[in-house]
Amino acid sequence: MKTILLAGAAGKMGQAIQQVIAKHDDWQLSAVLLHHPSAQSAFPAETKIFYKLDEIQGDYDVWLDVTRPETVFQNAAWAIEHHIHPIIGTSGLTDDQIQTLQQAALKAKTGGIIAPNFSISAVLMMYFSGLAAKFMSNASIEEIHHPDKVDAPSGTAKMTAAILAQAGAATAKPDDRRLDGQSQSNLVDGIQIISKRQAGYVAYQSVNFANDYETLSIAQNSLDRKSFMSGVQLAIKNADQQTTLLVGLDKMMGLK
């Protein structure tokens, strides 16, 4: 039986993940970490409920984190220290924090994965964009998420920018003329990212390339949080087999 501690279980992603766990006879939602006691009645009677890190007791195979940017680093560090394999689905970690967690994971021999996006199509979008950037070096990103998403740019957008930059791409002429009150522009690794928070969206991203007299756009759209569950399942199946802390679901999909 694979035992899972789900941090952020009361949120929309957490609730969807609970349904996935329940469908697997060999997985168990053994514990949850919550911010507020009000959601206590939503969990099976056998699930332990904790509200603070120092309250947590018991041994767990996997720590699945879908909390908030301001708590994710502390949560992940605690999990690694206690030899619980982390699956980090919360964005907001800085490069320095990721490196610190990776070093801690190596020392503890407790690997896992940081997944900026659990969507299989989003991972493929980033992969194909990395290929295109080798031939079309003028690139930019536009991402749209639901209004409740607190970080901008998104973790997926920042990871995409890193992939584009590694392939030699940059934004030739950053364009601010499209911006309005719901949008912001950031330059990440030389790539312009236009971020929007808009009702009616879950997660959308397009990577836009331009050469002389031609353009290419690679777009991905998650229409429901259920679209993330295939990636969640892949991560749960493989996280406790890792001895290093991977970054990106592509590492578990065999993409190079």
Rank of each mutant, 00 (worst) to 15 (best):
I144V: 15
G231Q: 08
N211G: 15
I113R: 00
L223V: 12
H82E: 02
G112F: 01
V32T: 06
T243I: 09
V20P: 00
L5K: 00
A165C: 09
S222Y: 00
T3C: 03
A203Y: 07
Q220Y: 10
A108K: 06
M253T: 06
Q99C: 05
L29D: 03
D180R: 10
S91R: 02
F135Y: 13
G111P: 00
V188S: 00
T90I: 06
A239S: 10
W63M: 11
L29T: 03
G92A: 11
K251E: 12
E46P: 03
A239I: 05
N208D: 14
K226G: 10
T156E: 03
E214D: 10
L179W: 05
K256M: 10
A79C: 04
K12I: 13
D240S: 13
Q15D: 13
Q233A: 14
L106F: 01
L216F: 03
A157D: 05
S121M: 08
I21E: 06
I114R: 04
T215D: 09
K226D: 12
L246I: 03
L93I: 11
K2E: 11
K23S: 15
M13E: 10
I4Q: 04
N221I: 06
D96G: 07
I191A: 08
G130M: 08
V72K: 03
D96Q: 13
I194E: 08
M253S: 03
A157L: 06
A199Y: 01
L124T: 10
A219C: 09
V150K: 14
T243N: 08
Q242E: 11
Q40S: 14
S119D: 11
G8V: 01
H83R: 06
L131H: 14
V188L: 02
F135C: 09
E46R: 12
G190W: 06
R178N: 14
V207K: 03
A115S: 15
A210Y: 04
F228Y: 15
A10S: 15
